[in-house]
Design a protein around this nucleic acid. Sequence first.
DNA 1: TACCCGTGGCG
DNA 2: TCGCCAAGGGT
Length: 339
Amino acid sequence: MRDPKVIPEKLRAWYDRHARILPWRVPPHAGHAADPYRVWLSEIMLQQTTVAAVKSYFQRFTELWPSVDDLAAASDAQVMAEWAGLGYYARARNLLACARAVAAMGGFPDTRRDLAALPGIGPYTSAAIAAIAFDRSETVVDGNVERVVARLFAVQTPLPAAKAELIALAETLTPMRRPGDHAQAMMDLGATICTPRSPACGICPLLEDCAARAQGIAAELPRKALKKPKPLRLGTVWIGLAEAAVLVETRPPKGLLGGTLAFPSTGWDGSDLPPPAPAEWRDIGMVRHVFTHFALDLTVMTAPLTGPATRGRLMALRDFRPDALPGLMRKAWNLARQP
DNA sequence: TACCCGTGGCG
DNA sequence: TCGCCAAGGGT
């Protein structure tokens, strides 16, 4: 019943009318290709991150660094500061490493294989850039596509075990013509109609082709393995204030919040570090923050510094930008500056 | 394979 | 208030 070619044709027709307008996107039939730099930058930012959260960051980055060569010339600290708040900070470190590699080789490679050799570019992102920026017929599989395909073919296997099967099914839909628009159409469909909860099947262009819809189980797919409960961890952070300055440190380059600007803290994994300086530390309250795999209750201590610090460095308040902090540290700062 | 790695919005 | 989830990659 389901002709494998009818689905991409219907999808393309729907996309031509309903494509989302996004700052990094070239509309269908624009007559020119997308800029690989802007495609790459947006794809990195969009990894596990919503379109709404990315928009202002994309705008800011492309203003500061209009080309990959401009970005390659930026400092680590500046890129980390501009990325602050977006999360998954390994992306920012890999972003800069990738920009420098691309600048050194004179531009982005135009095949999926060569793209995937660059830092921060994996199976999804390499396929997306190859299809969208270089018109390569690659199959782009993200969370949206997994969901759309699982429903179209009524795949009952739970994720992540179903991953290989979903990729194989998605490949059967990839066209030779306009593969980039096809990829973006699949993702737009997943983001606006074939949504995780209460999908809008009534207005779906693939309604007649959807096996899950026919069985009445669209909203139940894709099935997912049970996830482990998140442990609660405890920690302490110290915000030391000197004359028009605050005690900060740059966190170690790897691990949680790696490379970000922070206040000295315990390790919040049981390690029991001492305060970074002698002072009359005062407990001003606690902030809760939920990471991917654990929750954290962080006790916030403040004090005017009275002796030399054993950790961190003093930063003048005029140079200190709270929005250069990751979310957890921003919460602590906001608590500390309240009366 | 199974972890590790942020954040904000939404029902 | 809380669990779920979002254009994943690295190890």
